[in-house]
């Protein structure tokens, strides 16, 4: 066998990277790079989708195991309370750890720092729906652009993003959300000079959850003509619970 050779660099094989992303073997920078590519390259996004469908055939062989009988009562109780929290605090606090707190503080600092007139104080959301934050980092690490803060406020149903001087000249910066299925959904155009409050439509609202990726692409004025990103992706980040 020649299996101990160093694997060839896969950059030239987008379909193999697409398969790796769909299978879930990538982590860290490799995963982040592949996710950015999903946004920037529609052919790559289709390849990831095709591999997901192939691998989904394996779900059929996954053995069933009956859950404990009382479990559905707990789910119903959560629905009755109108809360998205499981009955035990359990593991979410561990997920929403220090990194999230840092992101949250950064988000608040950036959002509250007035551009010209003071920004309105971010209202406290009711407990029913969680406030989500993300820090959108420029794809080009050498760029002078600062990270952008994004904050979803369920009380006003608004996704608020800091001033985004990302698109030059006659171009527009468009915000996308990418849930687990990897398909980008348009959210709206970002203002270069002031924080943009974007209303979230019900379809997108149902998809907003911790772990969902936000990304900004450069588009023609007025936004992408196709409903999918057509220009380069210049910043990405992941939504987290505050």
């Amino acid at each position: 066998m020649t299996d101990d050779r160093t694997p060839p660099p896969p950059e030239a094989e987008p379909d193999i990277i697409a398969a790796e992303l769909a299978l879930g073997v990538l982590d860290g920078d490799e995963r982040a790079a592949a996710l950015r590519r999903v946004l920037a390259d529609p052919t790559f996004a289709r390849a990831v989708d095709r591999w997901r469908r192939y691998f989904a055939q394996l779900f059929a062989t996954w053995p069933e195991v009956a859950p404990p009988e009382r479990l559905f009562d707990g789910i119903e109780a959560s629905l009755d309370r109108g809360t998205a929290q499981p009955r035990r605090a359990g593991w979410w606090p561990a997920v929403a750890g220090i990194a999230t707190l840092v992101a949250a503080c950064l988000a608040l600092v950036l959002l509250l720092r007035p551009a010209s007139p003071p920004a309105p104080v971010v209202p406290t959301a009711p407990r029913a729906a969680p406030v989500l934050v993300a820090t959108l980092t420029p794809a080009d690490k050498a760029s002078a652009t600062k990270p952008l803060a994004a904050l979803f406020d369920p009380a006003s149903n608004t996704l608020r993003v800091g001033a985004a001087p990302l698109a030059g000249g006659d171009k527009a910066a468009e915000l996308w959300l990418i849930p687990a299925d990897g398909v980008p959904r348009a959210v709206g155009l970002l203002d270069a000079d002031a924080a943009t409050p974007l209303p979230v439509d019900p379809h997108n609202r149902a998809l907003l959850a911790p772990g969902v990726t936000l990304a900004v692409s450069i588009e023609p004025p007025g936004g992408s003509p196709t409903g999918k990103p057509t220009g380069p992706v210049v910043a990405t980040g992941t939504l987290e619970l505050v």
């Binding site: 009956a66 479990l71 499981p86 035990r88």
Partner: peptide
């Protein structure tokens, strides 16, 4: 639920965690 619990249990390798994840 039996299909989805089978998935959670195998990946979490922990019954309590699998129940919490299934709830979520």
């Amino acid at each position: 639920s039996a299909k989805l619990y089978g998935i959670c249990l195998r990946i979490c390798e922990d019954r309590q965690a699998a129940e919490d994840v299934l709830h979520e």
